[in-house]
């Protein structure tokens, strides 16, 4: 199986009529993803057309979900309106909201996260590449691609990938697929300091998923989310895990692109996180080129087959 989404998951796209949302809606449709609705306030009743696809547009998430049965939303709306877009998904009772938008104010996310407490909707992101559950077709066609990741680099299989960074996730997935190792689901949790789903949340889902035989955990400087995940892995997880932390050379106090990638103390440096990974039995990739190999080493040590 997979986590969070399956190839049959019906998704809607908030901001489908924008350049960014529209471009990726087309790529998801080409990948075979069930994009069943778009949402743009004021454009309800129109259609988003791509090849033979004719996706109906609704004024609200609630309308779209009710009419189409969509359970997951991909959010491409601009930062000032993105917090509101997430809350709309919560109100409509969706299972999952995936916020791709980069640049949402921290205060907006603090309020949104508080408002989501105790609600059924899970948030992935913001400032994330999204989530992919590969399909069985050529170049993993027929999967569920939500967000902006390149679908074709994936391959259906048994490895789970979780990361803050987009391109670093693609790097890991590409290495796996090149070695003929497929993935159950690849999850981008985003590079912002306040996000909906943590490394640990995703690790727990992978651990509970019988189809996932091993995991790659990709983190970076800033915060302590990777440390929290590593400690849980040590206590609860028997599956092989490989880890990588970006930012060993980043100077303290400087924000490295991602809003959350900033060293603020002694606990959130790359060296500190790598030390915890090692202590927790996670096989550390010495360079980003070593991520798939590190997982193979971890799997071999535990006698686990990844393919």
């Amino acid at each position: 199986m997979s986590i969070l989404i399956t190839p049959d998951t019906k998704i809607l796209i908030q901001g489908i009529t924008g350049d960014f949302g529209g471009r990726h809606a087309k790529l998801s449709l080409d990948y075979g993803t069930k994009v069943v609705a778009g949402v743009t306030p004021g454009k309800g009743g129109q259609f988003f057309e791509h090849g033979t696809h004719k996706v109906p547009i609704f004024n609200s998430v609630a309308d779209a979900a009710k009419a189409t049965g969509a359970t997951v939303s991909a959010i491409f709306v601009p930062p000032p309106f993105a917090g509101d877009a997430i809350l709309e998904c919560v109100d409509a009772g969706l299972d999952l909201a995936v916020a791709i938008t980069e640049g949402i104010p921290v205060k907006d996310m603090v309020r949104v996260k508080r408002a989501m407490q105790g609600k059924k909707t899970r948030l992935l992101g913001p400032n994330c590449p999204g989530v992919v559950t590969p399909g069985t077709g050529k170049d993993s066609f027929g999967g569920c691609r939500i967000g902006i990741a390149p679908g074709y680099i994936h391959k259906q299989g048994h490895v789970g990938v979780v990361s803050r960074s987009g391109t670093l996730t693609y790097e890991a997935v590409f290495q796996l697929t090149s070695k003929n190792i497929g993935q159950t689901t690849c999850v981008g949790i985003g590079g912002d300091p306040v996000n909906g789903t943590s490394h640990l949340d995703v690790i727990k889902l992978f651990n509970a998923d019988p189809e996932t035989h091993g995991m790659i955990l990709i983190g970076e400087i800033g915060g302590t989310a990777e440390v929290e995940a590593a400690r849980w892995i040590k206590a609860n997880c028997k599956k092989p895990v490989a880890g990588f932390i970006a930012g060993a050379t980043a100077p303290a106090g400087r924000r490295m692109g991602h809003a959350g990638a900033i060293v603020g103390g002694t606990e959130d440096t790359a060296a500190a996180k790598i030390a915890v990974f090692k202590e927790c039995g996670i096989e550390v990739a010495v360079t980003p080129s070593d991520m798939a190999d590190a997982l193979l080493r971890a799997a071999k040590a535990k006698g686990v087959t990844l393919t």
Partner: peptide, 15 residues
Amino acid sequence: NGAGLAMSTMDIIQH
């Protein structure tokens, strides 16, 4: 391209 990849490119140069 990408913040995570950019950070790890710096790291691998140092490595």
